[in-house]
Amino acid sequence: MYAQLVKSEGSKSRDEMTPEEIAFQERIDRGEKIEPKEWMPEGYRKTLIRQIGQHAHSEIVGQLPEGNWITRAPTLERKAILLAKVQDEAGHGLYLYCAAETLGVSRDELLEKLHSGNMKYSSIFNYPTLTWADMGAVGWLVDGAAIMNQVPLQRTSYGPYSRAMIRICKEESFHQRQGYDIMMKMCSGTPEQKAMAQDAMNRFWYPALMMFGPSDKDSVHSAQSMAWKIKINTNDELRQKFVDQTVPQAEYLGLTIPDPDLKWNEEKGGYDFSEPDWSEFFAVIAGNGPCNEERLGARVKAWEDGAWFRDGLMAHATKAEERRRSARHAAE
């Protein structure tokens, strides 16, 4: 998902837990929210920083592939919608960084880790957006996959994260729909538009499936995160749900899912489908995706080019405060 391969610290059996840890786990089991500054195991805190940080990074890097097309949007209305959507992503990054900050890490520290390659973002944003239909596919498939994960995360145990997810889910409700709306237009348009839509589907299907991360049904990290309720479903559960939801939507559009082995399995009440190429996934995560360099490069450039602006405003605020203070002093 937006937070793929988050290593969880901890994973202790009940016998190994301290009384504090047991009391903490019981609070979570009762469905209580954990708030900043309350006692929490160090592993819980660190895992959350990693997960929320990665999620935040994914939002701001995720601005770029769609941001690409804002200046090329084919109508004024499409331009406004796309811009509003990409702007929302900046907002979601902001909410998530703030949630992470309640755990004792600053936004600048998190950004430094992103820029130096020490923290990751979702693999999906390292794929190029080559045509306007990709704006449809990204909204429909990528946001669709993201929502699948984010809706349950509204119930996550960490209060600030949960509140951020609630706000994000509320705002994102139009994102997937606008993507599907683009796809509908393309699929009912000229043969060239339809072909563009199918091509986008072909390129984004497997990367979208990869967003959920490799199978984690036997992973100790996932087990711990699920016990802490910072992960609600397994990767495989969410992926299955996504496929089951998406297939009829593709059929409605008249698009073919690029998987010859896709078929309904009556017994399990869901579709059987092919796994994505996980070696490609690991290559992208390792930095070798088609756009890793451009994406990270763009973020680093924005940060470095903006340093004088951030410093200039801070310097003014400091000076203005000093001037106010000495004016008060003089008046007394």
Partner: peptide
């Protein structure tokens, strides 16, 4: 969009 010096300014 996506390239401003701070998230708040981007928005």
């Amino acid at each position: 969009c996506g390239h401003a010096p701070a998230l708040e300014e981007d928005i």
